[in-house]
Design a protein around this nucleic acid. Structure first.
Length: 277
DNA sequence: AAAACACCCTGCCTGC
DNA sequence: TGCAGGCAGGGTGTTT
């Protein structure tokens, strides 16, 4: 579910609530989040219990809770498709599919809820050793300029859509914002990445614009996403092509098309995004 | 090297 | 109203 704008919105909402709070306990469900790889749940206790949250950061689609001592330790969280992260009073009932709970001093709980259990939590001792973070490419929001993006595109024959979704190449974009960025840049999703090299500046502008718009509207809620306060995002109404198959292109009126690449839906305007080989 | 595909889950929507 | 089938924004691992 959550891509960079959703994760950024959650981090901004979470940071003022949990910064400076001491973690007193860590609890996990009997069916924890270990679908993709085993999670070192006991390590979570070691790295957080008795410590204070020094800050909350985002890297790509990952959320990082930083411990106060030592500063380079903490917990890395990925929300998968349906993950939610919220702070709620410990006295209140836990939602179904609550899998990890951090008990905060003062009676609140930071709760990780994830129906599909595609999410992921890992202690970082230190954070630099967490492979998922180490493998990430530059951040989609601030990690590139036109020159470095052009260099990254050079020689890559994979479709530009696959390039933008590959977190090792550029971190933070998911299926929704990739469709939106390619539409804004006027680039057909099947175009080989290398062929977009000379349009790197336009592509970068488009990526930045759709991400900034998503953040300004506090994320895209199609179904599951809510921010740290439990509020839906407003960006769904601003989507130009995603989920709008057969509806008119907002720019030229041509029917938006849906195609499937590598098992994922892509939406584009065949006129504004003509194929190029 | 890279593309295609199956897979990990649950919930919701559609159509019969 | 019930049920089967399709679909979902992510990431990984295997096969071609």
């Amino acid at each position: 579910m959550p891509e960079l704008p959703e994760v950024e919105t959650i981090v901004r909402g979470l940071e003022p609530i949990v910064r400076g709070r001491r973690i007193e306990s860590v609890w996990w469900s009997r069916r924890p989040l270990h679908l993709l790889r085993p999670i070192d749940l006991r390590g979570l206790r070691a790295v957080l219990v008795g410590r204070t949250i020094a800050g909350v950061r985002r890297r790509g689609k990952y959320i990082i809770l930083e411990s106060d001592r030592p500063r380079d330790e903490g917990v890395v969280i990925h929300l998968g498709m349906t993950g939610r992260l919220r702070v709620q009073p410990a006295a209140g009932a836990r939602a179904p599919h609550t899998h990890v709970v951090f008990g905060l001093a003062g009676g609140d709980e930071l709760r990780f809820v994830d129906a599909r259990r595609f999410g992921w939590v890992e202690p970082g001792r230190p954070l630099a050793r967490v492979a998922a973070l180490a493998d990430l490419g530059p951040d989609a929001l601030a990690g590139f300029d036109a020159t470095t993006l052009a260099a990254a595109l050079t020689g890559v024959r994979a479709p530009i859509k696959a390039f933008l979704l590959d977190q090792r190449r550029i971190a933070g974009l998911g299926n929704i914002y990739v469709s939106e960025a390619l539409f804004r840049a006027g680039i057909h999703p099947a175009t080989p990445a290398d062929r977009v090299r000379r349009r790197a500046a336009e592509l970068l502008e488009a990526v930045g614009a759709v991400l900034a718009g998503g953040i300004a509207r506090r994320g895209t809620t199609l179904r599951d996403y809510v921010d740290a306060d439990g509020q839906r995002g407003d960006n769904a109404a601003a989507l130009q092509v995603y989920g709008r198959a057969s509806k008119p292109c907002p720019s030229c009126g041509t029917a938006i098309r849906r195609r499937v690449d590598a098992g994922r839906a892509t939406f584009f305007c065949p006129r504004c995004q003509p194929p190029r080989r």
